[in-house]
Design a protein around this nucleic acid. Sequence first.
DNA 1: CAAGTAACTTCAATATCGAAAGTTACTACC
DNA 2: GGTAGTAACTTTCGATATTGAAGTTACTTG
Lengths: 117, 117
Amino acid sequence: MNAKTKKSQGFARSRCPVANTLDIVGDKWSLLVVRDLLHGKQTYKELAESPEGIPTSILADRLKRLEEGGIITSAAYQERPVRYAYTLTEKGKALGEVLLAIVRWGKKYVPGTQTFK
Amino acid sequence: MNAKTKKSQGFARSRCPVANTLDIVGDKWSLLVVRDLLHGKQTYKELAESPEGIPTSILADRLKRLEEGGIITSAAYQERPVRYAYTLTEKGKALGEVLLAIVRWGKKYVPGTQTFK
DNA sequence: CAAGTAACTTCAATATCGAAAGTTACTACC
DNA sequence: GGTAGTAACTTTCGATATTGAAGTTACTTG
């Protein structure tokens, strides 16, 4: 089901907020991009350099989907050569609460994980 | 990288708790199964009947992975015919905090979603 | 004009998903 | 005894997604 179909039908899988949230960020990479943006990263290059090593094809796709989902916005911060900065919307920044819960869980239940900064 | 490789090397993608948590529940279905178990569902059939319509092949796979990840345990609650009950471990129940954050986010930012119970 | 860089895009191989049908082991009904 | 039903999976296979690598575009810098 594409975005248009979803919009016309209302909901993809159910009306559950969990299901609908997972339809936007329920994959292995999206929340890592949000994490990086929350940490101040802004450019494609910075995002691509994170330790998890996201493939650039996936990064481009996720940036597109996150923008379609209203989580981020992109804007050229300079012309010649054109360079883009990605920033979180209010909706995107609010995912910080979800990430916080995930970090707390991970640090408690996945031994050896650690946060920096 | 398979589970054995991960175990021997320590970590799949990085030491970030977000990345490691997503390696366990970072997909479209796992947290929906956890949601249902938190809501008291216990059997394969009950889980399969949720409104999102999880394919049974995916459900069987996720139950296996969640058990390997220490999120759930399974036990036969009767013989002849044998029937299994899935229950959350303490580690699994603790994901309730993550789900709560997701629900709050979804209800605020995905218009039309709603919780029952 | 050669080299470098950011931001992508394309490609081919592999892996995973999803819908449906099939399997196993039993109980219940006629 | 035979047919139907049920829970819990497993199998199949075409469609879709992921991955790692290489290629492209538009510029700047030396």
